[in-house]
């Protein structure tokens, strides 16, 4: 089972849930920017949730399917077509041999995910298939997908094969209500916790962070979102030693313009941390395009944990619901 890449697009990489356990060696986590979309795409085709998918950025990517394949497309809306007809999103799709799947440009969100039943066959390096471009490891030879690449898939699970058989016989009239879990709007309130150095910022900056909008600039990528807005400053200069950082850490470098660390962040950082985006909002943040507007809102750690638990339960319930839809209706 293979597909051939006819067009690569802006930046298409193989990503799974991330490379955990090696950050103490300086090895970055990588993985999907929008992990909820990746996990749901995998669930829809019967894969393990953390299996590798293609992550497509802003525009591009055309694939030629060389066999009948069960796939699911989630994340942003890229006006995707299968042989010229609008492709259904957020549900399992059977693609017939010789079909062409084409992603145009994102009209909603900024990253789309394609899961293939059986997952993408590529070596597991340090527990993960995720592409780490700078270290040239993971994914396909440690690089982004290129025109002419052939992707092959693993053995589909029994559950995937059963899904495939049943979907072949009846049409689907349902899809996942992703609005419950991801916000694809380009003007968003992002919920944060105060960062470890919040108190070291002057009173005006502490206030500004929650009062003024910040714009996602063009210098934003998988490593970090560089924002532009009123500059934020420390009450007095202070030297922080490098220490662990994480997905969603909001750092303030000397320019005073915030940087939000994303999937390809370094493992450690030495800039003061004014805030930390809550885990439940990271996928929505990852769907923002350059020029999008962010307003930050403070929540408590209890609220942050409760939102995270609510979304995890939603994903858990999707699994049960799909099973019911496909096997019992």
């Amino acid at each position: 089972m293979t597909v051939k890449v006819l067009n690569a697009g802006l930046l298409t990489t193989i990503q799974d849930i991330g490379r955990y356990g090696s950050q103490k060696y300086g090895v970055i986590v990588s993985g999907a920017m929008d992990s909820y979309s990746l996990r749901i795409a995998n669930i829809l085709v019967g894969n393990m949730e953390d299996e590798a998918c293609l992550e497509i950025t802003l525009y591009g990517t055309t694939l030629h399917f060389e066999d009948d394949t069960l796939i699911a497309i989630t994340g942003g809306d890229f006006q995707t077509t299968i042989d010229g007809v609008n492709a259904p999103l957020w549900r399992p799709v059977l693609i017939k041999k010789n079909s062409i799947l084409k992603f145009k440009s994102a009209i909603q969100g900024s990253r789309a995910y394609i899961a293939f039943a059986g997952g993408i066959s590529t070596p597991i390096i340090m527990e993960s298939k995720s592409t780490y471009l700078r270290a040239k490891i993971g994914g396909l030879e440690g690089r982004a997908i290129q025109k002419g690449d052939i992707l092959s898939f693993g053995e589909p699970t029994d559950y995937s094969q059963e899904l495939f058989q049943r979907l072949d016989k009846k049409s689907i009239n349902w899809s996942i209500n992703f609005n419950e879990i991801i916000n694809l709007n380009q003007n968003q309130v992002i919920q944060i916790l105060k960062g470890t150095e919040f108190q070291l910022f002057d009173k005006e900056s502490q206030h500004t962070l929650f009062e003024k909008p910040y714009i996602v600039t063009l210098q934003s990528d998988r490593m970090g979102y560089r924002l532009e807005g009123p500059p934020l400053s420390l009450s007095e200069s202070f030297e922080l030693l490098s220490e662990g950082v994480t997905f969603g850490t909001i750092q303030i470098p000397t320019s005073g313009q915030p940087i939000i660390l994303m999937a390809d962040r370094q493992t450690t950082g030495g800039y003061p941390k004014i805030g930390q985006v809550i885990t439940a909002d990271l996928p929505s943040l990852a769907q923002l395009q350059p020029t999008a507007t962010i307003r930050f809102k403070e929540v408590t750690i209890l609220e942050a944990e409760n939102l995270l638990i609510k979304k995890e339960k939603f994903i858990h319930n999707i699994k049960k619901a799909i099973h019911n839809k496909v096997f019992n209706e």
Binding site: Y20, G21, Q23, K24, S242, G244, V245, T267, I309
Partner: peptide, 21 residues
């Protein structure tokens, strides 16, 4: 528990709140 990162004078501990919950 997911992993930890040691630094000069602290360690950062990464965990999954849902699993703990």
């Amino acid at each position: 528990f997911i992993e930890y990162v040691p630094a000069y004078n602290n360690i950062t501990v990464y965990y999954n709140p849902y699993v703990i919950h």
